[in-house]
Design a protein around this nucleic acid. Sequence first.
DNA 1: CGATTTTGACCTGCGC
DNA 2: GCGCAGGTCAAAATCG
Length: 636
Amino acid sequence: MAKGSGLPIDSDPIGFFIHKPTVLNSFEEDFNNNNKISNNSINSMDASSTIHHHERSPPHHHHHHQTLQFPVNLNYTHHKDNNSPEPSDEKNNNNNRTVIINEMDFFAENRNRDIKPSPSSYHDMIDHHKSFNEQIDIDMNVNTGLNLLTTNTSSEQSMVDDGVSNDAAAEDKKPTTELVVLHTEFQRVKSENQRLKIALDQVTNSYNALQMQLYITQTGNKSDEKVLEDGNNNNNDHDDDQNINLTNGTNINEGKVQPVVPRRFMDLGLANNGEADETSLSSSEERRSELVKNGHGGDDQMEKKEVNRALIGREDSDPDQSSQAGWVPNKLPRTTSSGSVKDSDQTEATMRKARVSVRARSEAPMIADGCQWRKYGQKMAKGNPCPRAYYRCTMAAGCPVRKQVQRCAEDRTILVTTYEGNHNHPLPPPAMAMASTTSSAARMLLSGSMSSSDGIMNSNFLARAMLPCSSSMATISASAPFPTVTLDLTQSPNPLHLQKPPQPPQFHLALQQNASSATTAAAAALLPQILGGQAIYNNQSKFSGLQMSSLGQENSLAPTTVAARLLGHHSFSSSSPPQNSLSESVNAATAAIAADPNFTAALAAAITSIISGTHSNNVSNNNNNNTNNNGNNVNV
DNA sequence: CGATTTTGACCTGCGC
DNA sequence: GCGCAGGTCAAAATCG
């Protein structure tokens, strides 16, 4: 190819899919769609239940059904796929007098009613759930699933009118006792439902509190700085609002947490210490400003390199990085050299550039992550016939975020996107999903890395588990050369599109065994962020979820399975706390933060939307204001 | 004409 | 010191 041919991305230089670049759907659209769909599958108890939705889904939509699990055991039974459940039939078909409801039908039926299927926020989900329960209470002729069979109230009457009461009359008042029993049972279930509602509220509150705690921990006393740093607060406020909603899928604390998430969009180089982080942020941003003013400011390259080498030991030289104004590696040494966190100097020095790798099936040249990217290089990497492309974020001058895009050698339908660096600018909501995911994953990784008491990170502490492309694992790895979190989304982005997913997506997190309980808990507390704010307890045998194993003794310590079903293979079991705990603190922190199943769904929806967006042809470029019209940059 | 892509050259770290 | 590999630069070409 002639140099400077300016070959458009249509030629798919990275992959081998010569095709017209797919114009991706608006991310928000996808996201909303996902949320809508997600509602349909609320309370689905098993994979089979999810298939019902899938079958009814319009084929052309990206219905990345996520099964949202509420911590409520409603004991639903799925028995049919009709859109309009007919209670009488159900009752007739049920010898146990268990009124059955297909909750998906229920939601399908109520979708156009007062239950709004857009739980893009946690509170929406809560409201949604409450509405659902209210519907259960009110709409008894439709519902149950509570194994209810009672009479007294008007709503209850409808349940027993057609079949049960007749039988009762025919059997000569015998049911008096039975009715009492059933009524008692009904009351019990009702109270159980109430208790669960209360529990849900408590969980919500706990989550909010922990969210705030997490924020405080991460940002320390720098929250004011954050605001001041941002010369354009008004503009960012809006973004912040959106970011909250779309990042965590919550509206948590409304105004309280708003400054939290939006500020750091990608913290791949983030130190565990919030102070350090903010320090680095400030300094790096100052540097950015200076360098932006002075062009690429290559004068101090050598000086920076020396600093890097002195402070980081083995660090990518990346001569241009310093010239790229605010490139992440510069942040760590600066952070440590600031003296704010001396104890973590060693640790941070050990921490190399954290990377988050996202593996996804996509025929598009890039996955739509909502950012604008400019290609600055392409290389043939060893062991892979597919070239690796290097992009840097162009959404703001001097944004240090870069990413590499390369197709998997073994399965070229899989696109591996590796993110690195911190955005120094607000991101559009669509970009928040991926940014927040990768940020959280990186933070998680770094937290785990720093949990070592001596700061020495075994480069092989977690054997690189990035196996063949078919791997469905999402792996956190600190193996050389860079600590990397790999989110493997190569499994169907829409688990509901799979009849029987062979294996649920997983997160493997290896925490060092000698981590203090505090740091372990901190790391555990971050787990939900990886999952968009959620991890779900469950039986280890039920899913292989996020496993927290000990360094070096992964076999000696039963892993705590903090199940996290990234892509919606939910089988939430609120009554099944982890049996094998790594530590109580882990459990406590994780339980408190991870109690919200909506996060997984929201995150999964976001990610699957991103991924699926690459499969779809749509018109997002119509909204693309950037000048890149080659299909590389997708404003979603 | 500015933004973007291409691509050979260059830099750096690492292993031998 | 040399070769290799990863990563980046920057001139030239291309695109809208």
